[in-house]
Nucleic acid binder design. Structure first.
Lengths: 211, 211
DNA sequence: ATTTTAATGTGAAATAATTAACAAATTTAA
DNA sequence: TTAAATTTGTTAATTATTTCACATTAAAAT
């Protein structure tokens, strides 16, 4: 089965979120243009993404919401589920723990790490904080494959190296230090300042266009 | 002057960050391939982006770091600076306030908003928290053009509407509710779950390819 | 029944983004 | 002071992504 383009994966994640909302609203069928409108994209885009999933709808009634959620899950999720650790329990790490805990049935936040003795041993949303020195055992015993890095920038490179050495296969890096990882580790980087600067740039541009 | 593509703006923001680091390290000139390596992209990409800026370097010595920082700033920043408000002072809002305060000389976090009486009136990194009911006056008096939304999802649509009604020109939405804004308002949405699901998907795919 | 209407799935076209290729320029080395 | 080496800027080619256009299908209306 073909690996999906990253952009499509992102949208499928969004579709699923919206479809779950729709189900809550009692909606059993949804048209491509409805889903598109919710996400401010085109209906063709939606249909093309679903095409890549190999899924066909019943004509004229729209896509059956339950079935579509299931089909997206089959493609995106790992059947056994995947375990995630939050590395760095500052405000951002804590926010992420609250946000992600229990959100997706196949993505479990099972541990967090910090170096602050005041945090080690504490629990947020049922997620226990371990010392960074316990990383090796914890990753192994809890079968953690994904690390979310919300550590201070000074320790970013070191922490990334340690995660990789201890068998992590995916890193989601929120620090603003660009990392390099081996080719068998998937790296996603997100820099909040960059996004904010983009907003600022386009606000400035919009303003100058209006003049 | 041409509006730059969003992708280029993102990279220019990154370049500037790296160039500032390089300056700290005492580096006065940098080659395109050096900058590229730091960011795990190609040297051609770097040169093409700089080409869009209309900037030419001194041959063979690399780009003068100071000058380049200045040129990027001229293009990205608003000369008078832009003011930002953080809306929702939970863990994420607090993290962003710490992170963004004083980070860029032309982007000032000048206020935050919340509805929790326990937070209103408090200060984080010199940023005072106001009641949401004071939004109109505060946005006006402090000349705020950008709102960063870190509110609970239930209030997202309402808050966005209020921001727009009170003259905000750019919204950076961290809630997982897709928003719709008038065409003269720039909207950037970021959904952390989507990114995490993307990491999870590719980790799963990498694993199955190895088999 | 037949026609109209409203959706879908998809090949082809268009657009956007990245990379390759290479001439021009300049430093370094011979 | 000439040749070799290196780096840049940019055109052209490539690749990725999105949109158009429309045949196909099925429900609803006549």
């Amino acid at each position: 089965m073909e690996t999906l383009p990253g952009k499509t994966v992102e949208r499928l994640s969004q579709y699923r979120r919206r479809l779950l909302n729709s189900l809550d609203d009692g909606k059993e069928y949804i048209f491509s243009h409805e889903l598109a409108e919710i996400l401010n994209i085109t209906a063709v885009q939606v249909r093309r993404d679903l095409m890549l999933l190999g899924y066909s709808s019943v004509y004229r009634k729209g896509y059956p919401v339950r079935k579509l959620i299931e089909v997206i899950g089959k493609r995106l999720d790992s059947s056994k589920g995947q375990n995630v650790a939050i590395v760095g329990m500052g405000n951002l790490g804590t926010a992420l723990t609250y946000y992600l805990s229990g959100l997706r049935p196949k993505l479990h936040v099972v541990a967090s790490f910090d170096i602050d003795p005041g945090k080690i041993g504490t629990t947020v949303e049922g997620v226990k904080c371990y010392s960074v020195s316990e990383m090796k055992e914890t990753i192994k015993s809890k079968n953690i494959s994904i690390g979310v890095m919300t550590v201070p920038q000074a320790s970013a490179k070191e922490v990334a190296k340690e995660l990789v050495n201890n068998g992590i296969k995916g890193i989601f890096n929120f620090t603003h230090i660009p990392l390099t990882v081996p080719p068998d580790v998937y790296l996603e980087e997100y820099d909040m300042l960059t996004s904010l600067e983009k907003v600022a740039y386009f606000v400035k541009e919009f303003a100058s266009l209006r003049k």
